[in-house]
Design a protein around this nucleic acid. Structure first.
Length: 584
RNA sequence: UGGCCCCUAGUGUAACGGCAGCACGACUGACUCUGGAUCAGUUAGUCAAGGUUCGAAUCCUUGGGGGCCAGCCA
């Protein structure tokens, strides 16, 4: 699916319109990924009576990141494509880690990405009574028992990867005793960890998940939703499949590490004799130059390596959003990376390119000088100010034009001048001519230096005949520079970001070191007083601009104040010159 | 040295026993009042070996490489 196609299906907020799907249905021409193939096969065989029901099941114990976005786009996208539904379900079975703050933020992020679960927001914790009843059922069927082994003993009895486990001495308790004990577990008679409820499967199974897995553990903890109603909590494995079952999920899509759990997922559904969804696993997203694990992300926040979960360098949805990523760009990215079972790492350049592609067609252009070098136009009248007309967006004629004040003193980028220009340097140098974007052609006639020999000012002349828009302006000039009129410049802070890590794979470290060694100390550069064209003073939080020749910038929604916007560089423009220069 | 899963250009991802294609990257060139954008082109691949077959990236076997699993986490 290409980007314009996707744009057609979104509303003003960039959301997918209800009922719109990304393809016309089961007979799309587009190549199918392996999950779409499964779904289309199921549709043909009528396995689920034509239904497609998916779900996005986050645990509310952290903020969502770009990896979650892949799953969100997959699950909601599949539902949209095949005329089905996608539920939002919080997998909240561990009260010690989960918080309401996260359930709120997760909803915001999913909605911001452009997806709508309508009224289908569910919580695994709402299923606790049913789950309890199902546990009792398995006890009665002789397929579950209360075990008194400690955590350490349980581990010892489990065996190893290569050796079978041993049966728990409590494995053959009577149904009556198990029922009684389980009831008392629930009633709070026992301390944390004192007993568990376990499924009676096979302690010799080569799949460790089947060696009598724990179904319930005792946890005297306050749950974010059920409070102190329960002191026993079901494990993931005893919750997820049944939750899917309750919600009549057809395709339960999860990441690869749950592959080994699928036999257990199937075992519970079969033993309980309930509706049985199909679990399908795909490879989670990895990106170069960043980390994706919640643990490492949390470490970065806690150690103050970043300013928070929404630091623009973070791969979190909130970080990307604050940096200036759009929902469209993220969705487009998720479309193009594909879905497979191979553990892969996507080049960060793919993400960046998705943003450029989106912002190129919608971001208004502006002139901004990040590292100013003063230029005095010796032949320009002292107090004259002219208004120059500039195109707002060459990709979008409807964006119109704007006026730019021009005067005798202007700023250009320090990088745009070289006293001793290398070959292929098309910019300004002594004796050279260059065009000022939407203004005049100027020529450098002098260089002013301070005591240390640093260039502090350029003396130039302008060609009065070369004003943009007039016929005489059409002379061939090698380079075009951006500029800002010095007396009219609006001073503002601009932040430049680089990769959080210096190397593609942060975990690739020399012996003895850990991933911290790969942190990029220069990932944030703050330029406190850049010179921007005047209208940028009114830029609103979240607004995107292209600073011509520099990149796409977005007004920081956290640190900006009215009249004092702070700009984040969302992504740089492709820079051919930088490439040439790097090659030497 | 148990079990399960995976392996296609640099990175990703298609090809459903029948011409190995696409995207990103890289490199050329054209165009350009953004060294942006756009356009055109080049580059480069089926992990290996056997087998089945008229024909194998695809099916089978063996080998190689990688991932996951020994939480009362999800």
């Amino acid at each position: 699916m290409n980007a314009p196609h996707e744009r057609d299906k979104t509303d003003d907020q960039g959301r997918l319109r209800p009922g719109e799907s990304d393809a016309s249905g089961a007979t799309s021409a587009r190549n199918l990924n392996f999950i779409e193939q499964i779904i289309e096969d199921d549709l043909k065989s009528n396995k689920w009576q034509g239904r497609v029901q998916t779900r996005f099941p986050p645990e509310p114990n952290g903020y969502l990141h770009i990896g979650h976005a892949k799953s969100i786009c997959l699950n909601f996208g599949l539902a949209a494509r095949y005329g089905g539904q996608c539920n939002l379900r919080f997998d909240d079975t561990n009260p010690t880690k989960e918080e309401d703050e996260y359930v709120t933020s997760i909803q915001e992020d999913v909605r911001w990405l452009g997806f709508d679960w309508e009224d289908r927001i569910y919580y695994a914790s709402d299923y606790f009574p049913q789950l309890y009843a199902w546990a009792v059922q398995l006890i009665k069927q002789g397929q579950a028992y209360v075990c008194d082994l400690t955590a350490e003993e349980t581990r010892a009895y489990r065996g190893t990867l290569t050796e079978p486990g041993r049966n728990s001495p409590y494995r053959d308790r009577s149904v009556k005793e198990n029922l009684d004990l389980f009831e008392r577990m629930r009633a709070g008679e026992f301390a944390d960890g004192q007993r568990t409820l376990r499924a009676k499967i096979d302690m010799a199974s080569p799949n460790l998940n089947l060696r009598d897995p724990v179904m319930y553990r005792i946890l005297h903890a306050t749950h974010h939703r059920t409070g102190d109603q329960w002191c026993i909590y079901p494990m993931y494995d005893f919750t997820h499949g049944q939750s899917d079952s309750i919600e009549r999920i057809t395709h339960s899509i999860c990441t690869l590490e749950f592959e080994n759990h699928r036999p257990l997922y199937d075992w519970y559904c079969n033993a309980l004799g309930i509706y049985h969804p199909q679990q399908i696993e795909f490879a989670r997203l990895n990106l170069t130059y960043t980390v994706m694990s919640k643990r490492k992300l949390l470490t970065l926040v806690k150690e103050g390596r970043v300013s928070g979960w929404d630091d623009p360098r973070m791969p979190t949805i909130r970080g990307l959003r604050r940096r200036g990523y759009t929902p469209e760009a993220i969705r487009s990215f998720c479309d193009r990376i594909g879905v497979a079972k191979f553990n892969s790492t996507i080049d960060m350049a793919v993400l960046e390119n998705a943003l450029r592609e989106d912002l190129n067609r919608r971001a208004p252009r502006a002139l901004a000088v990040l590292r100013p070098l003063k230029v005095v136009l010796e032949n320009y009248p002292e107090d004259q100010v002219e208004e120059m007309e500039a195109v707002n967006n060459p990709e979008d004629p409807s964006a119109g034009t704007r006026q730019l004040p021009f005067s005798r003193e202007i700023y250009i980028e320090q990088d745009d001048f070289r006293e001793d220009p290398p070959s292929k340097f098309f910019r300004l140098a002594p004796g050279r001519e260059v065009r000022l974007r939407a203004a005049y052609i100027i020529k450098c006639v002098g260089v002013v230096k301070d005591d240390q020999g640093q260039i502090v000012e350029l003396r130039c002349t302008y060609d009065p005949e070369s004003r943009s828009g007039t016929p005489a302006a059409n002379r061939k000039v090698k380079g075009t520079l951006h500029w800002v009129s010095a007396p009219h410049a609006f001073r503002a802070e601009v932040r430049l970001f680089d990769h959080l890590f210096k190397v593609m794979d942060p975990d690739d470290v020399p012996a003895g070191a850990d991933w911290h060694a790969n942190l990029n100390p220069d990932s944030l550069e703050t330029l406190p007083a850049c010179c921007l064209e005047p209208r940028l003073a009114d830029a609103q939080p979240g607004e995107h601009f292209q600073f011509e020749r520099l990149g796409y910038f977005t007004v920081d929604p956290v640190d900006s104040r009215p009249g004092h916007p702070v700009f984040n560089r969302s992504v740089s423009l492709r820079d051919t010159w930088a490439k040439i220069e790097k090659q030497g």
